[in-house]
Design a binder for these strands. Structure first.
Lengths: 364, 364
DNA sequence: CTGTTAGCGCTTTCAG
DNA sequence: CTGAAAGCGCTAACAG
């Protein structure tokens, strides 16, 4: 298929196909080794020869073949970043952190999306492994169950055998004996802090907007923080206040609007994400409720746009970019022997960013 | 370096390194070809043999080497997507479109960022070419000058020689003779429509917030649309109303706040992006000005969060996701001979989304 | 149905 | 300083 290049009388360039090392060597009147040496610049080559080779390379627009190189062991290392959906604020920040740190180390960054499908996640990871990725970073929560753990454990081992590293980012560890790097943020703590703040402001009926039918680790942690805060304040948790809802704006709007039609049995809403908070805010306003005068509102993620909501959204800040950088750093440092396995589990802090959407509980 | 695997008495797996086809063959007691056939599933293999091979593959956790495959011509095709910065609304949507269409075709999507550095853009493209990307998609405006055109033309030809395709996405063509696919949106038309709308509402002094010292094609097009609308309405363009400003929220806030300290010599603001519009809105409000009662405001991009601004932002919708899908579709269809070169330049439409941030010019 | 063989394009000893 | 030669791991004729 790749054609007649190299045949007598036809060069790769005449042919319209990519020039190979051999073509360059022929043109420069040297051996392939010499061209390779000029390219790698890791071995003495006579000035005159070097010039001739460089000239041929330029004239033929030679572009090295990564695959052939990789096969010989000289790899353009890549870091793979696997996420659900590239849209939607927060993960993009993680991606940026990953990109940044990877670029700093001269590595390429592969980004793949899974659309929330665990099956696809596995297949994508496999593809990355085939590509020889130095690290495979999985971002975002998952439905945590036995099947998931078994498969992820196998994946971690397989990756390790390939000389790669699995990184769980914003997702809890699956066991200390599993060869995986874990970079978490204090998901539960952030939710605890937010809920506490609402409780301190006098709220007792706080709607948690965002439980899932199949709860992911992300929701699980936030819900746990919410419940723990209630418990610590001696407030009994009311299951009716744990409202099913997805991460998106639209779903939050619909769910809350629906609920408000029936009853308004809460004085504060803790939305599982800022996007959901935006939807909740719109729903509240459309129902004639003012935030924070009538109902207080809290978000989670601290996306850039939280500040443009009115009132400005009080939310939980997550160091997403740092999460991405750390993921790359830990995984690669380990490979290079510059970090120990002991340092391969990190939890970054979260904190509430106080803005304007939470007020004291209105009397009556 | 890759070690002693394959030596007598040590298998790849014992060794802790990745198992190769040969190891699997040995274990299953067959030849490499047979294993290869089982894997490719493109040739008859006896049931019993197949089972034995499959078993060995599983037991050894065999993972194929993409690079070796690629060298033989069997490639996991990748589509490369090159952008400035992965954060910030709109390009992410394009990336999603690209991802979607690439995935639909079973292709991998490589995403790389350049931080706005043309030098780096070129080097990234080169790396993608080395990787054997089927298409290299460049997204976003650039400073359009002779040097850029020369280099991009060379890049396009080089890519073509590699059997790849350059795609300029949201960036104008650099000439009909250049082998590149161009997927634009009606950038100038969107700005024209927005400005017209403001003019129709009676505004005569419209601040264009977002000219650059080194204007990019994106800004250039939007500014051109702005000027053309003014001209068509017989309003003389005042250079003082073309305010230097970047794409981001923070810069817009600072610039407009600074300007408002001196004078308020406009009744409407046309921000070059929605992000800038968010900054402008905050600046206006902080200066005690109400939108749209005192000053009207228009944005560009129609990012998801434009609807959460108060007032809801009137802006120009750009079909970003569609842009990404189209980029992939055109480039790949051409490769596969399912599209002609004539169809390789497309301009998608834009339109104003009317919300609440533009009102009739206040009297006096 | 299965095995043998000849490379894909490149790097890297090992000899000049 | 330069060249010849031996593969990296895999696939695809070509013979059995």
């Amino acid at each position: 298929m790749s054609g007649a290049a190299g045949q007598k009388g036809r060069t790769a360039v005449d042919d319209g196909s990519r020039a190979r090392l051999r073509d360059v060597a022929e043109r420069a009147g040297v051996s392939m080794s010499t061209v390779s040496r000029v390219l790698a610049d890791n071995y003495p080559v006579a000035q005159a020869t070097r010039q001739r080779v460089l000239r041929a390379i330029r004239e033929m627009d030679y572009v090295a073949n990564t695959h052939a190189r990789a096969l010989r062991g000289v790899v353009t290392q890549t870091v793979a970043f696997v996420l659900n959906d590239i849209r939607g604020g927060s993960f993009t920040q993680v991606a940026h952190g990953v990109e940044e740190e990877a670029a700093r180390r001269g590595m390429l960054c592969l980004i793949c999306t899974t659309q929330g499908d665990l099956e696809r996640e596995l297949s994508v990871v496999r593809t990355m492994q085939e590509q020889g990725a130095a690290a495979v970073i999985l971002i975002g929560g998952v439905a945590d169950n036995a099947a998931y753990r078994v498969r992820m454990t196998a994946t971690a081992h397989s990756l390790e055998a390939s000389g790669s590293r699995l990184v769980l980012c914003g997702r809890p560890s699956i066991g200390d004996d599993v060869p995986a790097t874990v970079v978490e943020y204090d998901n539960e703590g952030g939710a605890y802090a937010m809920t506490s703040r609402m409780l301190v402001a006098g709220h007792r009926r706080i709607l948690f907007l965002g439980t899932d039918p199949v709860p992911t680790t992300t929701v699980g942690g936030r819900l746990a923080g919410y419940r723990r805060a209630l418990a610590d304040f001696g407030v009994e948790a009311d299951p009716a206040l744990e409202q099913a809802c997805g991460f998106g704006r639209a779903d939050a709007y619909d769910r809350l609007t629906g609920r408000l039609r029936t009853a308004r049995d809460f004085t504060a809403v803790f939305a599982v994400t800022d996007l959901a908070a935006a939807g909740a805010l719109a729903a509240l306003n459309d129902a004639g409720l003012k935030v924070p005068e009538d109902v207080s509102l809290g978000g989670y993620d601290d996306v850039d746009t939280a500040i443009d909501l009115r009132p400005r959204l009080t939310t939980v800040h997550v160091p997403y970019e740092e999460l991405g950088r750390t993921a790359v750093r830990l995984a690669l440092d380990l490979r290079e022997g510059r970090a120990s396995s002991a340092e391969q589990h990190v939890t970054l802090g979260t904190h509430v960013v106080v803005r304007e959407s939470i007020a004291r509980r209105p009397l009556g």
